[in-house]
């Protein structure tokens, strides 16, 4: 039985690009759980996660020769995976946006009332994780993807902005609004009455300082 391959990610990717048959597989297996977590938490669907990850790995496999090392291999892989996930979700166009506190209409209140306004009161970390994961799944996918990368995977705002091809301010905005929505859904923030988010389908990204030009939800 052989131990783990001692080579670095960069060395494995270079070996793959040079034609070594198993190098890409070693690299993938080394990171597959993290990549799977990103895909699953971003898509919130097992099949979508598997499909997106497959697309991403095919893409990475083919693009490896052009990897220039500007970022870590893991960052590069995460970028490909999260973009594959977002593309998949975007194509489906089935997301909806939960309003921020103070923006819920009556229909939304009915649908989300208990979860939004009562503390979830999880009894264990496992329960907490399940509740948070479910709430995360209710966010618009671009907010969810940003939070998955920043708050769950630990990437910096700048790195995520780079990964997703938008301005840093846009990522900050997505994270901020996503967290605020989570606060309501998790019962940490009361819901205030105010005009509903019309249609419940859109919020605009903030585009400070030159803007992100991100119209992904259009």
């Amino acid at each position: 039985m052989t131990g783990p391959d001692p080579r670095t990610d960069e060395e494995l990717l270079a070996a793959h690009a040079a034609g070594e048959p198993d190098a890409f597989g070693v690299l993938f297996r080394r990171h597959r759980d993290r990549l799977w977590a990103v895909a699953l938490r971003t898509t919130n669907d097992r099949e979508d996660a598997a499909d997106a990850l497959q697309e991403a790995m095919l893409s990475a496999h083919r693009a490896a020769a052009r990897f220039r090392g500007e970022a870590a291999v893991t960052t590069w892989l995460h970028r490909i995976v999260v973009n594959a996930c977002v593309d998949r979700l975007r194509r489906r166009q089935a997301h909806f946006t939960l309003p921020l506190p103070g923006q819920a209409g009556a229909e939304e209140e009915d649908r989300h009332g208990p979860a939004r306004n009562e503390p979830a009161a999880p009894s264990t970390d496992h329960d907490t994780a399940m509740v948070v994961r479910a709430a995360l799944a209710e966010l618009p996918y671009d907010q969810r993807a940003a939070l998955v990368l920043v708050d769950l995977q630990g990437y910096s705002v700048a790195e995520v902005a780079e990964m997703m091809g938008v301005a840093e301010g846009t990522i900050k905005s997505r994270c901020s609004r996503g967290r605020a929505r989570l606060a309501v859904m998790l019962g940490h923030l009361r819901n205030l009455s105010a005009p509903p988010d019309v249609g419940g389908t859109r919020t605009q990204d903030l585009a400070p300082r030159g803007g992100s030009h991100d119209h992904s939800r259009s």
Binding site: L40, R41, A129, V131, V132, L147
Partner: peptide, 15 residues
């Protein structure tokens, strides 16, 4: 509180 909740999820393995 949200940050704390997210930290719990982050620490939960998702193999």
């Amino acid at each position: 509180l949200v940050s704390a909740d997210l930290a719990v999820l982050s620490a939960t393995p998702e193999p």
